[in-house]
């Protein structure tokens, strides 16, 4: 069987207490929410905190609130709650869809919004047991010096495999982070780094407390996920598309690709290609091609990389067609 290594487990009741515990435990401590990402990683020995601080009992981190017209989702809200929440489904269907597409219903009962947003980047050279990694020699993300996906590369190419991350970037959500220094709010686009190891701008001692969604007025968004199976699987491509409409015309647009890079990758050229149009087939085709070009999946997830790249075009086009169909003025 696959067992957890030994570690100290702390259960703070408040944010303040959690931060104190973190400070006392130092850099060998990690926060855990649902545990669906961290515990498998610990069992495979590629994350090895000696202290784990559970955020599960901090009430303030759970639930959906309305603040100044913004919907704020506590980081500890489970993915099931996010996917089924009436207000989120109504006003932020892309968020609900993405949350509801993650893994399985059982894992969504455990996994949290914050956990998915902070999901460790994935790579099938990395997400393996200690023994397996030993057999090919360790990679730079854990215990080694090389990136097996791109051996001549100085950086790690592990993939951001969060379904929610590209949606938050596309719709312009914000993350609230709390540390001993106080709170700071970061736009989702600035929350992620294009690096497989340092994939978050969040400092390890900071706690992601909530996701703040923009007011649902005049824009629409969608999320399409490509994965082998209808459950369990991480995306091998995610497409989040956001459009601010001016009647039947695209006033502004953002297209963000998930699972093809170490961060949710915005493709501004694709958005630019449809601004000012009414999303005719030609405009959609131009945008799809613009997204296809920079999409450079690596050979470290399920499915072939060139097919995944090809699918960028198809899925971006489908996402935009869906948004076009949603606009009753067209």
């Amino acid at each position: 069987m696959l067992r957890l290594p030994r570690f100290d487990y702390l259960e703070p009741k408040s944010l303040k207490q959690a931060l104190k515990m973190r400070e006392a435990s130092g850099d060998n401590a990690m926060y855990v929410a649902g545990g669906t990402d961290l515990y498998p990683n610990m069992k495979r020995r590629h994350q090895d905190p000696t202290t784990v601080i559970s955020l599960a009992n901090i009430r303030a981190l759970t639930g959906v609130r309305n603040r100044d017209g913004h919907t704020c989702i506590g980081a500890n809200t489970t993915l099931t709650q996010v996917a089924k929440h009436r207000r989120i489904k109504r006003h932020y269907p892309a968020i609900a869809t993405a949350a509801g597409s993650i893994s399985t219903p059982l894992l969504r009962n455990m996994g949290t919004l914050g956990g998915n947003l902070c999901l460790d980047t994935r790579c099938n050279y990395y997400n393996q047991t200690l023994e397996w990694r030993k057999s090919i020699d360790y990679c730079m993300k854990k215990d080694g010096a090389i990136c097996w996906v791109a051996p001549s590369s100085p950086r790690c190419w592990a993939v951001n495999s969060s379904d929610l991350a590209p949606v938050t970037v596309a719709i312009g959500a914000e993350m609230a982070l709390v540390s001993a220094d106080g709170e700071r709010v970061v736009p989702a686009g600035k929350f992620y780094n294009d690096d497989g190891i340092e994939y978050l701008t969040k400092r390890p001692d900071e706690i992601l407390t909530e996701l703040r969604l923009p007011q649902p007025n005049g824009w629409d968004a969608t999320y399409l996920k490509l994965a082998r199976r209808g459950s369990f699987d991480f995306p091998v491509l995610g497409v989040a598309a956001w459009i601010r409409w001016d009647g039947d015309t695209v006033a502004d647009a953002r297209i963000v690709l998930g699972a093809v890079a170490s961060y949710p990758m915005p493709v501004p050229e694709a958005g630019a290609a449809i601004i000012g149009t009414s999303l005719g087939d030609d405009a959609i085709e131009t945008a799809a091609t613009a997204a296809f070009k920079p999409s450079k999946p690596m050979d470290n997830t399920d499915h072939g990389l060139s097919w995944r790249k090809q699918m960028t075009r198809v899925y971006v086009a489908r996402a935009l067609k869906e948004l076009r169909a949603n606009n009753k003025l067209i």
Binding site: N124, I136, F232, D233, D302
Partner: peptide, 20 residues
């Protein structure tokens, strides 16, 4: 690098779920 099973896990060895 080595002749090793590419991903000996139930996530990566694809077995059909109820959806398939």
């Amino acid at each position: 690098r080595n002749v090793v099973h590419k991903f000996p896990s139930m996530l990566e060895y694809k077995s059909p779920t109820t959806h398939e």
